[in-house]
């Protein structure tokens, strides 16, 4: 069973995933593997340079910051770049999945909904937190400005839309225990 876990920037999905990992659940970090593929997959690198220009290459690697600055200001290029990256990540995921033997696996992705990959998940967990708390967390851990965080949030789906499609919701507002919520979901998924 594939269980997707997602949440807006600063919601705390990585911490929730860490708890699942502690319980022995295999975790696939889609963002980590897609970055890794950008660094290692020569075919993907060539396709991206063909699309976005050779300027996005730096010391034989894709300069992710440069690529982001190009694609996030041009929706057409964003779609085309995603069309190159997502199938690669999907293939990598399939290979990884074939090696797992736990009753379910967690696929962690920041843009699970936005990329459409939630459609391939059997269950979806959304980690949510109040907007102000998310902004405070991101500012504290990354030092980026409030405006910049709000701009990034705007590029993600609205929280309400994600919650509508969620099978499980984890409240990470600093009051409810993450561990207790994860344990409850874990039990429920094992009994499925």
């Amino acid at each position: 069973m594939i269980v997707g876990i997602t949440g807006g920037i600063g919601a705390g999905k990585s911490t929730a995933s860490e708890i699942f990992a502690f319980l022995g659940v295999p975790i696939y970090e889609a963002d980590f593997h897609s970055k890794n593929l950008l660094d290692t997959d020569k075919e993907l690198q060539s396709s991206l340079m063909e699309l976005l220009g050779t300027d996005i290459s730096k010391n034989g690697l894709i300069d992710r910051a440069k690529m982001a600055s190009i694609i996030f200001s041009n929706n057409d290029l964003l779609e085309k770049a995603n069309a190159l990256i997502h199938p690669k990540v999907a293939n990598h995921f399939k290979e990884w999945l074939s090696l797992q033997d736990f009753p379910y696996i967690i696929k962690e992705a920041a843009i699970l909904f936005e990329s459409g990959s939630y459609k391939n998940c059997d269950q979806v967990i959304v980690v949510t937190a109040p907007k102000d708390l998310r902004i405070t967390r991101v500012m504290a851990r990354s030092g980026i400005s409030r405006e910049e965080i709000l701009a990034r949030m705007d590029k993600q789906w609205p929280e309400e839309k994600k919650l509508e499609l969620a099978n499980f919701i984890i409240q990470n507002d600093g009051n409810a225990s993450l561990i207790k919520q994860v344990l409850k979901i874990h039990k429920s998924l094992l009994n499925n």
Partner: peptide, 11 residues
Amino acid sequence: LKLFPENVKLT
């Protein structure tokens, strides 16, 4: 003891 998370982000 297992901490969640085990690392903090420092700026």
